[in-house]
Amino acid sequence: MEVAYLIETIIKVVVVLTIFSALAGIGTYFERKILAFMQRRLGPMNVGPYGLLQVAADGIKLFTKEDIIPTNVVTNVFKIAPVITASTAFMAAAAIPFLPSFDIFGYTVNPIIADINVGILYILGIMGVGLYGPLLGGMASANKFSLLSAARGAAVFISYEVVTGLSILAPIMMVGSLSLIDFNNYQIENGWIVFNLYGVGFVAFILFWIAAFAETGRTPFHLIANDHEIIDGFGTEYSGMRWGLFFIGEYANMFFISFVIPLLFLGGYGDGSLLGALALLGKVAFFFFFFLWTRAAWPDVRPDQLMWLCWKVLMPIAVVNILIAAIIMI
């Protein structure tokens, strides 16, 4: 029993790692293509049919590039920072149920690596740790732009974490559990949380969604690596696969948060039928697409505007939301 469980877990870990590393690569392809179409361009076209092998070309380039450690950097921190980003992104995936459980060869598989009872807290906490990557990498780089980016990273971090934490309090109060599986089961009986409790769920959903943009550092809040202001931010001094690790971390994070939002608010995988699983994948695809869509359409805010938004607007709304939820539930 123990051995079987161990083997199953290892297989699941390997599958999740491979699938999402590959998805991170393919995500860049989709990002380029969709951004290009929205700007009336064609995007990558030359490597492979419709540029499909561009991902492979990028991978070869990243892997074979010289790994430069500039002088004056704090070597150990500089080396470890990208690993933090990539590894925490994947660690967060441990508590996400990617699909409903299914049977192969009479053996029931739960596509979740560990259904721990503090699931959502664990995911948000580990994703928060992921921000140490840009922070440490930026501070260790001996580069002004990287340092600015690290400072912005800290500012972004203290702003959005408040909103994320407070916004999911109301749904947690409804469900009474922190496990994403319990969230899913609750929504089978009581309908999607977005529509629950006279709009409280909807407000929480919007707040969490906004905070997700800050969490993944996507466009309206793309402050830490804002190319037109601070070059590549924390990534300026990185080259080769170390930079690639930052990249994989960022895209894996986008995919995982796209899984978390529907699991928390939009009914997850439903009753566990095939249709429910497909619906979940459809929702994930939509949220991922939305990340790219906003990148084509919206401008970036300034760091102080983000802090203003999080502390003075979103946080009061979140607190009021929790109060309303509490009053209704009493």
Binding site: F37, Q39, A296
Partner: peptide
Amino acid sequence: VMREMIKFDVH
């Protein structure tokens, strides 16, 4: 941007 993507009027 969505309208431009659907029109697919690539230049």
